[in-house]
């Protein structure tokens, strides 16, 4: 009788333990997903800001048509990008184009003093930062999640319920170097 109770108790504890691990895995996977959607939100926000920026800059930058067009084109490409690989390439191009635009802004003191431009610039700087920080946070979450599904004993549960390792969001070194100072100057 007593032995029966003990066995029952052990089974209950065991089940509770596994349920706990399972829930922790689900929580972590959701955190990864949430972090990914954060990146998406910020990328979209950047796309939304660009027409405003170009519109403001146009009036002042008569001789920088190409630079502005380049930004607009890069934006269109980035918005149309489908796969993750395409996307990160297109976004990196967009960052590069924006960086070049911000460098030539230096030559237009009137534009730099424009209140509307300053506001867009602050928003853009912040959005760039937010993209970087959400990538940082996403990669942290992925690392933690991947560790968890590879380590004992949570790996048993992970294998049983098909939790698969998530990919890191890496930015190619070259692209990264191309946007050294997207936190533009005034």
């Amino acid at each position: 009788m007593v032995v029966g109770w003990i066995i029952l108790a052990l089974i209950v504890i065991g089940v509770a333990y596994f349920v706990g691990i399972y829930n922790a895995l689900v929580r972590l996977r959701n955190r990864v997903k949430n972090a990914w959607s954060q990146i998406d939100v910020q990328l979209k926000r950047r796309h939304d800001l660009i027409p405003n920026l170009v519109e403001t800059a146009k009036g002042y930058m008569k001789h920088e048509r190409e630079t502005l067009e380049e930004v607009t084109k890069a934006r269109t490409r980035a918005m149309g990008a489908g796969s993750v690989g395409e996307k990160s390439k297109a976004e990196a191009d967009l960052s590069g184009a924006l960086g070049r635009l911000m460098l030539v802004v230096e030559n237009y003191p009137d534009l730099k003093a424009n209140e509307n431009f300053l506001a867009v610039q602050e928003e853009l700087t912040s959005t760039e930062n937010k993209i970087a920080f959400s990538r940082q946070s996403y990669n942290d979450s992925v690392l933690f999640f991947n560790n968890k599904i590879q380590m004992f004993p949570s790996n048993i549960i992970a294998n049983t319920f098909n939790f698969t390792a998530e990919e890191f969001f890496e930015i190619e070194e070259a692209a990264e170097r191309e946007v050294p100072k997207v936190s533009f100057t005034t």
């Binding site: 955190r31 928003e123 912040s126 930062n129 937010k130 920080f133 959400s134 940082q136 946070s137 979450s141």
Partner: peptide, 12 residues
């Protein structure tokens, strides 16, 4: 606000 939101994102 932007700075606070940036850090909110970074800290998750």
């Amino acid at each position: 606000f932007n700075v606070v939101e940036e850090m909110k994102i970074a800290a998750g």
